[in-house]
Simulated scan of single mutants.
Amino acid sequence: MSLTTVVQWMSEQRQLGQAIALVLDSEDERETRQQLLRSCDYERYCGVYHQTPVSELADAGPFIFIIEPREYAVLDTLLAEPQRHWGWLASLPQQQLPALTRHWRERIITGTRPNQALYRFHDNRVLARALAFMPEDARPGYLGPVTSVCYWAQSRWDVTHNPAPGEHPVPDQPAWLNVPAPPLLAIDILHTNIYRYLWAERSDEMLTLSQHRAPDEWLAEQLTQARHWNWNTPEQLHFLVLHRLETLERPLIKNWSPRDHETPQAHFERLLSEVQFWAGETPL
């Protein structure tokens, strides 16, 4: 589908009396965000991370704007470059921005401590893959008050409708969290989630690290090492990243390498036991 798809979709939704919302990746589209903030009334935008446990990341988090005709020039610029992965468009009933914001605030944090992560709902690649894999009856719990979405999916514009728009509770087992991600996208999402978590929860250690290394590059090295060792579980990644961050100046483990014929799980458990020993928690 071409850009004509987007124009037709917007026209149809407006004829139905729907508002058009732009879900924007604020971190990578700051100039666009500032343009819209200058144009939009307070009632027509919201920073999703505000008033949430990750409010420290609000400035870099996603924003939702209700777009009026006077903002179409800004929107045209985005639509001309979908490969920037700036976000996606949604239609929803008038005056439903608070409901939509509340909907995503209830879904942005996944997992339980210490293995929590941010769900990047504002990334069109994440949205497109979720909608491609989940059954239609799971869409209402995912899209909430949204009537229809229009988004860039790999190499074309696509549209998906919500069969039952409204306010829905978060399912016990959200279908969108069981969607397989392409390897490169999964790595990128994992890196982003852990990086933001570290700045939110371990800012002192990250500031210390930044005096010697670029934190982003350091984290990429840790995740590359984890893949090399086939450490893929949340517990293994959590242990590797946090322990290395906490012991930057005085490392407890001198040799992280696996032993001959040692399985990834045995390798992990051996190093975990070593750390617990030096912490006085268990005998070695």
Results as ranks from 00 to 15, higher is better:
172 D>P: 01
94 Q>A: 11
79 L>D: 02
154 Q>N: 05
161 H>F: 02
91 S>I: 13
130 A>E: 00
98 P>N: 09
186 A>Y: 09
133 F>P: 01
110 T>N: 01
83 Q>I: 09
173 Q>C: 07
87 G>Q: 08
143 L>Q: 12
172 D>E: 15
102 R>C: 03
192 T>F: 00
117 A>N: 06
147 T>V: 14
87 G>T: 05
155 S>F: 00
132 A>I: 00
137 D>G: 00
110 T>I: 06
170 V>T: 14
106 E>V: 05
183 P>H: 05
98 P>F: 06
135 P>Q: 10
89 L>T: 08
127 L>P: 13
88 W>H: 13
99 A>V: 11
98 P>I: 07
141 G>W: 07
193 N>T: 11
80 A>H: 04
134 M>F: 08
191 H>Q: 15
104 W>R: 05
159 V>D: 03
105 R>W: 00
113 R>S: 09
177 L>T: 12
194 I>Q: 01
179 V>L: 08
80 A>T: 01
192 T>C: 01
95 Q>D: 13
120 R>V: 02
134 M>W: 03
171 P>W: 02
143 L>D: 14
164 A>W: 10
105 R>M: 02
147 T>S: 14
147 T>C: 14
163 P>H: 01
99 A>R: 12
89 L>M: 04
100 L>K: 03
106 E>I: 02
95 Q>K: 06
111 G>H: 07
133 F>W: 11
184 L>E: 15
158 D>V: 01
168 H>E: 02
163 P>F: 01
116 Q>N: 07
186 A>V: 12
157 W>M: 06
176 W>I: 09
157 W>T: 08
128 A>E: 04
146 V>M: 15
103 H>V: 08
115 N>E: 13
188 D>R: 14
